[in-house]
Design a protein around this nucleic acid. Structure first.
Length: 569
DNA sequence: GCCGTTTTCGGCCCGACTGTTTTCAGTCG
């Protein structure tokens, strides 16, 4: 049992209890526990062995007992029992925008609606609008919500896919006879969501590997099995395809399976035009001899071009650029010198200032900015003026004692619905980093939201615009905003745009990040972390940047502190 | 269900928006 799986049980338990109308505080206690468990540093199994589960904040006697039950039996009786009462489809209905526990319950109890299909039918038959708490407009919203969920269906966040991939790879790598194993497909190309996880392994005998995956604890059922490949569906809601090849076919298979299909097709075409044959066996010349391949770079070299990293393999001009020797030197995680969007216990995060400093130093960063929420964001315990200034005083004091590390003062100031910022200019002026973000009024018109963000961009004290389109993958569409106009304005004012690295945001996305660069805008990759583990998500923002063809020069948090201060000034 | 340098019971981050049964429950961040 992984922590994340235990956390999922508690999160679902919270949802189920909420649907039953259970006390809100009890629901919240489970939800908090789920979040805490998901972000623990150590495996629960280990903590249990050391008798430390009850010591975790937010975990009391009752939840501790339940965790132990899960660790021993693999499930939770109370959770299973609730699932008997409430069909899982009702949980999905509750996740529709505009539908919460109360409305989902009305739909279930009064119309017997158990899943999205039944809901869609009821809406089309106009049976929903007359229910208490519903309306004709809401029927429209429901259909849109169902569309959104259908679009996402079967796809998971890249971070989930990578976590599962890592676990399976480590498991397969140590099996007898395995020489190599790698993740391929869209996961290796770092696409923001993943439909299936594709693995390729090199081994002399496939059978032990196929059996190992078939019986792995993550595997729910085997979908298909052939002599050298197996497809399974996992408990994580992601299917996994493992192909086992002979060692000499590993590199060409890894390369082909990584795709993308259009990229690979283009290479095959190019190979053919040179009298070569490129396929999963390798590259064959006109004499029918296979060229020797040490790595993927040899494939590209044989075709007369530079090596193309997986993130660029989308047939968006990378082949032509590689032929001309003009691929950009992509940004690397190691280029990142600091994180400029971090929350602490002063607002709604689990980390205190000392935690942040320690972890950022461990990561080898030279600086970090503390940017807690501003006063209007009450639910996140946003800082009023007094607390903000107090925090900044403390940060400046801490800074004096730090060596080779700079803790910057800052704030994530709300761009309010009336386009003003949450603090006056005189206050913003005094801090190192001002991020301005929208956290309210998402449903304003395109014109209004664009104007709001434009005003923030124009404010000379605003350094960075945070998560500019506001999307949350699979949960919330971006707000209606004229991104192109904002890029133009940001270029004019020298305002920096954030690539929010949180795997469910990735905002700006790769398309806009690329356009930003082309418009002459500088970017900053931030985690927006609310707990220690999520400071590690920088890599996902770097992946967006790489897929957007960005180099070190395009990203300001690759600068050393003195240069960074210059840019922020 | 969790928690306690005021409380082992009684608190638990708040407020805006929405649609509308025009007075507030439900949802959201």
């Amino acid at each position: 049992m992984q922590n994340i799986e235990v956390a999922w049980i508690f999160a679902e338990l919270a949802d189920l209890l909420e649907l039953k109308g259970e006390d809100f505080f009890k629901v919240r206690a489970y939800r908090r526990a789920a979040k805490t468990l998901a972000n623990l540093e150590l495996p629960l199994v280990e903590l249990n062995r050391r008798g430390l589960i009850g010591k975790i904040p937010g975990i009391g006697k009752a939840i501790e007992t339940k965790i132990k039950e899960i660790l021993v039996t693999g499930q939770l009786a109370k959770h299973q029992q609730l699932l008997q009462e409430i069909p899982p489809g009702v949980l999905e209905i509750k996740r529709l925008p505009g539908i919460g526990p109360a409305r989902a319950r009305v739909l279930f109890e009064q119309l017997g609606i158990k899943d999205l299909d039944e809901l869609e039918r009821a809406v089309k038959e106009r049976r929903v609008r007359n229910l208490k708490g519903f309306s004709a407009k809401m029927e429209w919203d429901i259909l849109n919500g169902i569309q959104m969920i259908r679009r996402r269906h079967g796809r998971v966040l890249l971070s989930v896919a990578r976590e599962l991939a890592q676990e399976l790879i480590e498991y397969i790598r140590i099996l007898p006879g395995v020489s190599q194993v790698e993740v391929t497909g869209s996961t290796r190309r770092w696409r923001e969501t993943v439909g299936d996880l594709d693995l390729v392994a090199a081994a002399t005998d496939p059978e032990p590997l196929l059996t190992a995956l078939a019986t792995h604890p993550r595997t729910k059922e085997v979908i298909e099995k052939q002599a050298n490949r197996i497809r399974v569906f996992t408990w994580w809601g992601l299917s996994v395809d493992l192909q086992v090849v002979a060692p000499e076919e590993f590199i060409p298979t890894l390369h082909r399976n990584t795709g993308s299909k259009p990229h690979y097709a283009k290479l095959q075409e190019l190979a053919a035009s040179q009298g070569l044959v490129l396929d999963h066996h390798g590259i064959k010349n006109e004499a029918g001899e296979f060229l020797k391949l040490q790595g993927e770079a040899d494939i590209y070299r044989s075709l007369g071009m530079d090596y193309i990293p997986p993130e660029l393999r989308e047939n968006r001009g990378e082949v032509e650029a590689a032929q001309r020797g003009q691929l950009p030197g992509l940004l690397e995680l190691a280029d990142i010198r600091g994180d400029l969007h971090i929350h602490t216990t002063w607002s709604d995060s689990a980390m205190d200032l000392a935690d942040v400093v320690q972890r950022c130093q461990e990561k080898g960063y030279a600086y970090a900015a503390i940017t807690d929420h501003s006063r209007s964001l009450k639910i996140a315990n946003g800082l009023d003026l007094d607390r903000l200034l107090e925090q900044h005083t403390i940060i400046r004091e801490m800074n004096k004692k730090l060596e080779d590390f700079t803790l910057l003062t800052g704030v994530e100031a709300d761009i309010l619905p009336d386009a003003s910022l949450d603090y006056p200019d005189e206050v913003l002026e005094q801090m190192d980093v001002v991020i301005a973000s929208v956290h309210s009024g998402f449903k304003q018109s395109r014109q209004e939201i664009t104007r709001r963000i434009t005003r923030a961009i124009e404010n000379e004290h605003v350094d960075i615009i945070g998560h500019m389109t506001g999307r949350v993958l699979g949960r919330r569409e971006p707000y209606d905003v004229d991104v192109e106009a904002l890029l133009e304005m940001a270029a004019k004012t020298g305002t920096i745009l954030e690539i929010n690295a949180s795997p469910d945001r990735l905002d700006l996305n790769e398309e806009y990040a690329k356009k930003a660069k082309e418009a002459g805008v500088k970017l900053c990759i931030n985690t927006d972390a609310h707990d220690l583990r999520r400071l590690d998500e920088m890599i996902y923002g770097v992946a967006v940047a790489r897929r957007a063809w960005l180099t070190k020069d395009d990203v300001i948090n690759t600068l050393e502190i003195a240069e960074l201060r210059e840019v922020l000034r």
